[in-house]
């Protein structure tokens, strides 16, 4: 019984990731974390929902198969004077165990495709950031601003101050500041070997491939600092090229841009400069000139 209590408690500790709406986005893994990082973006929220469905299905399958296996092992263990059966066919049961998995797969496939197309459909971007993987650091370029591009190197072990919220192997010397509640188009490429840009809390992962420009998007709804790590083997420093993203309110972002010396380009993709997420919802994409922006 103790063991079942333990199992239940395991499930309960994995609940925070399931109750995705109430907790804030997760910056980095908790000790003994069991499940996905809690979402900071709508994309990750959808992924968590879908995974919760999958988790129920696959757990049920494993339990059923294991139960059948254990039952067969106990019930049909060798006994004296009991002759084994000799049947080797049963058309009905064979049809059932072909059809039922197909039905389960359809149940999985429908939300799976919905999620896939949701992830693919990039909403009208309000900010475009191009990121380039190098051995072994990331370069960032805010495409809508002049003079706003920089390289982000990992902080060395002795520069880390945990009380400031910095984390070893995760914090960089130049966090990428983004406004919350903004649809951000991410362009991902690499300058030498393959890398992959990843941000688990936002549900983003895209390979950085030299000679190619990959595209994805994110919208971070909860202010906070989020971390990611290079997710494609890229040589000696593969484990040492983290991604640090700081999501701040719009005004703070604008202040940061000015402080960095960035100026808005004429052909920018910033359609509105809403001061709050609510404003953005009520007043989406109005600037017709910029929708026709050929640079997109």
């Amino acid at each position: 019984m103790k063991f079942f209590a333990f199992l239940v408690s395991l499930m309960v500790t994995s609940l925070p990731a399931m109750a995705s709406d109430v907790v804030k986005g997760q910056s980095y893994a908790d000790s003994w974390q069991l499940n996905l990082m809690s979402p900071a973006s709508p994309m990750k929220a959808e992924i968590v929902d879908f995974h919760n469905l999958l988790l129920v299905i696959i757990t049920a399958i494993v339990i059923i198969v294991t139960a059948l296996l254990i039952y067969a092992c106990i019930k049909f263990r060798r006994k004296k004077d009991v002759e084994p059966a000799s049947f080797a066919h049963n058309t009905l049961i064979e049809i059932i165990w072909t059809i039922v998995p197909v039905i389960i797969l359809i149940i999985i496939a429908i939300p799976s495709f919905k999620l896939l197309y949701f992830e693919d459909r990039i909403p009208e971007p309000e900010l475009t950031i191009k990121t380039t993987g190098y051995q072994w650091y990331w370069g960032y370029e805010y495409m809508d601003y002049d003079g706003l591009e920089f390289l982000a190197y990992p902080l060395a072990e002795d520069q880390i101050d945990e009380s400031k919220g910095q984390r070893r192997l995760l914090s960089t010397d130049a966090p990428v500041v983004v406004p919350v509640g903004t649809n951000i188009q991410l362009l991902v490429t690499a300058a030498d070997v393959l890398h992959a840009f990843a941000l688990p809390a936002a549900g983003v992962k895209k390979d950085a491939i030299p000679g190619r420009l990959n595209e994805t998007w994110m919208r971070i709804d909860k202010p906070g600092t989020y971390y990611g790590q290079c997710s494609e083997i890229c040589g000696t420093g593969h484990a040492y090229m983290p991604i640090e993203i700081k999501a701040v309110p719009r005004a703070e972002f604008d202040a940061w841009v000015r402080q960095q010396g960035g100026t808005l380009k004429e052909n920018n993709s910033i359609t509105t400069i809403p001061d709050s997420a609510a404003n953005k919802q009520a007043n989406p994409k109005v600037d017709v000139d910029n929708i026709a922006n050929p640079g997109r």
Binding site: K44, I47, F50, H51, S112, L116, P200, G203
Partner: peptide
């Protein structure tokens, strides 16, 4: 197997 899930 789910491309949408595999992202994370």
């Amino acid at each position: 197997a789910n491309a949408g899930m595999d992202v994370v």
